[in-house]
């Protein structure tokens, strides 16, 4: 479970990005965050695993406070998988090495054990035959699936997705979304920043609309799409749903 309590974030002394965000994400839920660029969606996501150090408020992940000095942040992060818009695969390593790096270095698994597990996950995301290739030799959709596999290899309790399909060609979006839909249906706790409203309709338990660093509207899939209450949400939905 993720509890976000009154979180505010600044970049530099004057530039405030998040304004007192309050949100609770229950175990097994999929929450979609959407909103215009610069609204603070990605920043909020990065606060959850402490990649962004917010200045006030508190985030508690499975009972552990993220920015508490007593918290082992590396251990906490190893239980939270993260997938990025631009994949961020390590270009000097094969797909397999990308996936096994953290299990070997952080979880101290043996190489053979980590590789066995990595192959199982690659099987699950549908690209076991790409294991020995470097990221540059893979398509965008394949790279993103390797990135998802890399996160899953740590057997995380939570998965964070930061616009996972925004950098993909249209014909590759589906292969990535399919993997994410499977994960959501298997009961993974997921926080997904995305504009894929089809995905949101299908699996989101809750949709959060952000603008200018604040949560403007939230609701379950049906209510959010059919009766958006806020004018700003309505305009945004009109624009992205065409």
């Amino acid at each position: 479970m993720i509890e976000i309590k009154n979180v505010s974030l600044w970049y530099g002394p004057r530039h405030q990005v998040l304004y007192g965000i309050d949100e609770t994400i229950a175990k097994g839920q999929t929450v979609v965050i959407c909103g215009p660029s610069g609204s603070g969606k990605s920043s909020l996501l990065r606060c959850i695993n402490g990649l962004s150090r917010f200045q006030s408020g508190e985030i508690i992940v499975d009972g552990v406070s993220v920015l508490d000095p007593a918290t082992n942040i590396h251990k906490l992060r190893s239980n939270i998988g993260m997938v990025f818009q631009h994949f961020e695969l390590y270009p000097h390593m094969t797909a397999l090495d990308n996936i096994t790096l953290a299990p070997i270095r952080v979880r101290k698994k043996s190489k053979s054990e980590a590789e066995k597990k990595a192959m199982e996950i690659l099987e699950r995301v549908g690209i076991p035959e790409q294991a020995r290739k470097h990221p540059a030799a893979l398509s965008g959709g394949q790279q993103q699936r390797v990135a998802i596999a890399r996160a899953l290899a740590m057997e995380p309790a939570i998965m964070l997705f930061d616009e996972p399909t925004s950098a993909l060609d249209p014909e590759m979006i589906k292969e990535v979304l399919d993997v994410m839909i499977d994960l959501a249906r298997e009961g993974m706790t997921m926080v997904v920043v995305t504009h894929e409203m089809g995905f949101a309709r299908k699996v989101a338990h809750k949709i959060i609309f952000m603008d200018n660093g604040r949560v403007v509207e939230k609701g379950d899939g049906q209510a959010f799409f059919e009766h958006p209450e806020n004018e700003r949400t309505r305009r945004f939905l009109n624009r992205i749903l065409i």
């Binding site: 990065r46 590396h74 190893s78 993260m82 990025f84 961020e88 390590y90 270009p91 270095r105 952080v106």
Partner: peptide
């Protein structure tokens, strides 16, 4: 090397030195 690489390494639970040794310095 883009900061995204560091973020990806940290997100996986790697420490500063592990990130430097395995991700940033080789590149």
């Amino acid at each position: 090397i883009s900061t995204g690489q560091t973020m990806a390494a940290y997100a996986g639970g790697l420490t500063f030195f592990q990130c430097a040794r395995h991700v940033i310095l080789p590149q």
